[in-house]
Simulated scan of single mutants.
Amino acid sequence: MPLSADDPVATALRDAATAALAQASAALSSPAAPVVLLDGRSGAGKTTLAALIAADWPGPVRVVALDDIYPGWDGLAQGAETAREEILAPHRAGRTARWRRWDWSAQRHGESDAVGPGTGLIVEGSGVLTPASAALADVRIWLESPAGSRRERALRRDGDTYRPHWERWAAQEDTHLALDHPRHWATLVAEVP
């Protein structure tokens, strides 16, 4: 999403990035590289915020998008669990995290990916912030945004590819909110218009 100086969404995301970097700076002196989790409903601005944080990160950092891990349109919970088991837990333990990306065209697992323990980690995606994953992250962000704004941004971004799946995905987000209470686990809540 292009960010202009007079755009209230851009301002909210820039402010959230500044606050997230301030929180992450406290963890930069620890032996393990800091981990940031970014959660919010579809279209809230997670991908843009992750890019803003990564752009000013003081050292090596990797952004992992759950969009590359979810196993299809019904895979929100499984994608979040895969991120916890295969990325967050090994990274926190000081090991290289290894996982397989999801090939959306072939509807199956595709190429392998990895990130080393000395690299800062930003994991963004709906469902990523759970009670179990919260313990594995230094900064935990929940993005709050009105449904109409989110839908407009998401469909402008993904268009007809996403349109038939919007309600199906939103139902999985509803389940995540009811079961995991991600806002409760956040160290930072950002309101995005």
Results as ranks from 00 to 15, higher is better:
residue 183 R to D: 12
residue 187 T to L: 10
residue 146 P to M: 08
residue 129 L to W: 06
residue 165 H to E: 10
residue 165 H to Q: 11
residue 120 G to M: 04
residue 127 G to Y: 03
residue 65 A to P: 06
residue 96 T to Y: 00
residue 27 A to Y: 05
residue 89 A to W: 01
residue 21 L to T: 05
residue 138 D to T: 09
residue 154 A to C: 11
residue 46 K to E: 06
residue 191 E to L: 15
residue 137 A to F: 05
residue 11 T to N: 13
residue 104 W to V: 05
residue 175 T to Y: 06
residue 77 A to P: 09
residue 42 S to E: 03
residue 104 W to R: 13
residue 124 E to D: 13
residue 160 D to G: 10
residue 144 E to S: 15
residue 92 R to C: 02
residue 117 P to G: 00
residue 185 W to C: 05
residue 132 A to S: 13
residue 48 T to A: 01
residue 185 W to F: 13
residue 13 L to Q: 14
residue 135 A to Y: 01
residue 142 W to F: 15
residue 129 L to H: 06
residue 180 D to F: 04
residue 19 A to V: 14
residue 50 A to I: 08
residue 135 A to V: 05
residue 46 K to F: 06
residue 49 L to I: 01
residue 102 W to P: 03
residue 99 W to S: 02
residue 45 G to H: 12
residue 142 W to E: 14
residue 177 L to I: 08
residue 56 D to P: 06
residue 81 E to I: 01
residue 88 L to F: 01
residue 55 A to I: 13
residue 16 A to H: 12
residue 179 L to H: 10
residue 13 L to K: 11
residue 114 A to D: 02
residue 135 A to Q: 03
residue 184 H to Q: 12
residue 157 R to C: 04
residue 5 A to H: 11
residue 29 S to V: 07
residue 110 G to L: 07
residue 173 E to Q: 07
residue 112 S to I: 00
residue 39 D to C: 07
residue 108 R to H: 06
residue 11 T to M: 14
residue 20 A to Q: 04
residue 20 A to M: 13
residue 82 T to C: 03
residue 38 L to N: 04
residue 15 D to C: 14
residue 158 D to I: 05
residue 41 R to N: 06
residue 147 A to E: 12
residue 58 P to M: 11
residue 66 L to E: 02
residue 2 P to E: 15
residue 169 W to T: 09
residue 9 V to F: 08
residue 58 P to L: 14
residue 66 L to I: 03
residue 29 S to Y: 03
residue 143 L to K: 11
residue 162 Y to W: 14
residue 3 L to P: 13
residue 155 L to V: 07
residue 191 E to S: 15
residue 66 L to M: 10
residue 40 G to L: 03
residue 44 A to L: 07
residue 14 R to S: 11
residue 123 V to S: 03
residue 61 V to F: 10
residue 176 H to R: 05
residue 23 Q to Y: 09
residue 167 E to M: 06
residue 181 H to W: 03
residue 81 E to T: 13
residue 151 R to N: 08
residue 91 H to K: 02
residue 91 H to R: 00
residue 103 D to M: 05
residue 161 T to Q: 06
residue 11 T to D: 15
residue 127 G to E: 07
residue 101 R to P: 02
residue 15 D to T: 15
residue 143 L to W: 10
residue 84 R to G: 02
residue 178 A to M: 04
residue 39 D to Y: 04
residue 37 L to R: 04
residue 100 R to V: 02
residue 6 D to I: 12
residue 19 A to M: 01
residue 161 T to F: 05
residue 144 E to T: 15
residue 105 S to G: 11
residue 172 Q to C: 03
residue 69 I to D: 09
residue 88 L to A: 05
residue 30 S to T: 12
residue 39 D to S: 10
residue 101 R to G: 01
residue 24 A to N: 05
residue 116 G to Y: 00
residue 135 A to N: 00
residue 24 A to D: 06
residue 172 Q to D: 03
residue 171 A to P: 01
residue 157 R to M: 08
residue 81 E to S: 13
residue 66 L to D: 01
residue 146 P to K: 09
residue 37 L to P: 08
residue 18 T to G: 09
residue 150 R to F: 12
residue 104 W to I: 08
residue 108 R to Y: 04
residue 148 G to S: 13
residue 186 A to L: 12
residue 191 E to P: 05
residue 30 S to H: 10
residue 179 L to W: 04
residue 96 T to A: 01
residue 24 A to W: 09
residue 135 A to I: 00
residue 193 P to G: 14
residue 153 R to T: 11
residue 73 W to L: 09
residue 95 R to V: 01
residue 170 A to Y: 00
residue 149 S to G: 14
residue 80 A to H: 04
residue 112 S to K: 00
residue 74 D to F: 11
residue 14 R to T: 13
residue 28 L to D: 13
residue 154 A to T: 05
